[in-house]
Amino acid sequence: MIWANGSFEIAAAPVFVHGVAPGDVVLAARRPGDDGHWVQRIVHNSDNWLARVVPRGGRDLEPVVEQFRSLGCEA
């Protein structure tokens, strides 16, 4: 969601930005010659968190997913 003051609400797990999570509101700006928006700072912290899990060696992720779910997380 884009807000009028240049703020954006993070709607999904960000790929290239670390330190923010879905529901956070960030201030972002464009850089000259670049079409993307670059996060400058968090305006409102949603109290959500994000964990990135990287599978190695073809391991089954279901046990990891179940561990997070048992803690009440969406996975």
Rank of each mutant, 00 (worst) to 15 (best):
E66I: 03
A12I: 15
L61N: 10
A13F: 15
G23V: 00
V15Q: 13
F16D: 12
D47T: 11
A75M: 13
P14T: 00
D24I: 04
F68K: 04
W38P: 03
I10A: 03
A12E: 15
G58K: 05
V39F: 06
L71D: 13
C73S: 08
N48M: 06
D47V: 06
R56A: 15
N5L: 08
V43Q: 08
V26S: 06
D24Y: 11
N48G: 03
P14V: 06
S7Q: 13
P32T: 06
V20D: 13
E62P: 06
S7N: 15
R69V: 04
I42V: 14
R56T: 15
L61H: 05
S70Y: 03
R31A: 09
A28V: 03
L27M: 08
H44W: 00
A21R: 10
V15S: 12
D24W: 05
V17M: 08
V17I: 11
V25Q: 09
L71T: 08
R52T: 11
A12Q: 15
D60P: 06
R30D: 10
D24Q: 07
V53R: 05
E74C: 09
C73P: 07
A12C: 13
G36T: 09
L50A: 11
R30A: 14
V17Y: 07
G36S: 11
Q67C: 10
V64F: 11
V25P: 02
Q40G: 05
F68L: 06
A21D: 02
G72S: 08
A28H: 00
R56N: 12
V64W: 08
A11S: 14
E9L: 11
D34V: 07
P22W: 02
V65I: 08
L27E: 08
R56W: 03
S70T: 02
A11N: 11
V43A: 14
R31H: 12
S70V: 04
L61I: 05
A51L: 05
V53N: 05
A28I: 07
V39Y: 10
A75G: 06
H37D: 13
I42Y: 02
M1L: 15
D35T: 05
P14S: 01
N48Y: 05
R30S: 15
V54Y: 13
